[in-house]
Design a protein around this nucleic acid. Structure first.
Lengths: 190, 190
DNA sequence: GAAATCAGTTAGCTATACCAAACAATTTTA
DNA sequence: TAAAATTGTTTGGTATAGCTAACTGATTTC
């Protein structure tokens, strides 16, 4: 029945809009957002409340009730009418994974690409549904290594930003720059 | 009427799922995908045909007709029933922008993060709708600078991948590594 | 402890984005 | 050029994800 989805090459495999995504395979962006926000509220207030979820997501309270029922059906939250809301084990795991994807992406956007705080935040929030675990793990590794390796890190970014703003490329200075790397590295070791 | 969308802070501003996105502000993922594929087909065959669009997107021919009508309404394509399909000026501009976002993201995923071809492709296809022009421009700058600067580029990536696979960090070798950078840089200049 | 307020639910509605299957137009080909 | 095959459209339907407004349950407050 969902054969087509798998027959496709490249992006189209996962690009199809949501109307009829096989449930057991992937959660919709909307559901991932719900879980993410419920986790946040749980951490802050022990339990999540429909009103706060609605506020955070910028949707009406009425829309929340429907979504909660769906989350309950999928056994992602503990919920019955008028009760408080908590994540199940399964729901918690997914919520944490989504949150991690968000954080890693935001770090890349703000710390490496130096996008503004708000832009990084909103972009990460949209991207977090688009990258899988292997991808996000690689990006996390990248970030870690990037800020540890003497060849990269803060000062590389500074030079990159300067260059990308001015458009100039001054390869005369590279020798000096590499020497500075060595100096900094020695300072960090001792 | 759409006030709520703008009042929200952080990600939620743009994270809301599609049912009622103000049309003049942003195109849906689905529409961006249509434009992208029509551009691709146009470049290959001069015009796009519903059948090929359906195939590329992995949807039924019937679903294409409906979408084409919407695209025509928005003046993004030239279309009337049973006609061939071409992009309007406006549609072409958007299609090119989407395609560029796709390409830049894919380059980052495959060339920097070294994700497999297919994973990079499908991830880029999902991410391309999530990043704005300023973000993609910065990422493009990043890629350009990353592969030009003697401190980064191919060999940095190789070391990063080795390190991220083995998990080991051998900061003893950094001096040698930085010297190698200088040597390579000299070779490239002369 | 009753009235008022706040929070959650329900009901009915809209828009997007798809599907399948029947049908119609266009091309191909025999 | 008529039948067959292909391509495009229409129709009626589903699922998601939201909306508003009326209503109901729970909690304050006086």
């Amino acid at each position: 029945m969902f054969d087509l989805v798998y027959k496709l090459k490249y992006c189209n495999r996962d690009c199809k809009m949501r109307g009829r995504m096989p449930k057991e395979i992937q959660l919709s962006n909307s559901i991932e957002n719900f879980l993410e926000i419920i986790l946040e509220l749980e951490r802050r207030n022990k339990v999540a409340r429909a009103k706060d979820i609605a506020e955070k997501l910028g949707i009406q309270r009425g829309s929340v009730t429907g979504a909660l029922k769906k989350l309950e059906e999928k056994k992602l939250i503990n919920y019955e009418p008028y009760s408080f809301i908590t994540l199940t084990e399964k729901g918690g795991q997914i919520a944490k994974a989504v949150t991690r994807r968000h954080t890693v992406l935001k770090d890349f956007l703000s710390k490496v690409l130096q996008l503004e705080e708000e832009t990084a935040e909103s972009t990460a929030c949209r991207m977090e549904h688009a990258i899988d675990e292997s991808g996000i793990n690689r990006l996390a590794d990248f970030l870690e290594y990037f800020f540890q390796c003497p060849r990269t890190g803060e000062d590389w970014i500074q030079t990159f930003i300067e260059n990308s703003q001015s458009g100039k490329r001054d390869w005369e200075k590279c020798d000096q720059c590499l020497d500075n790397c060595k100096t900094r590295h020695k300072r960090n070791i001792f």
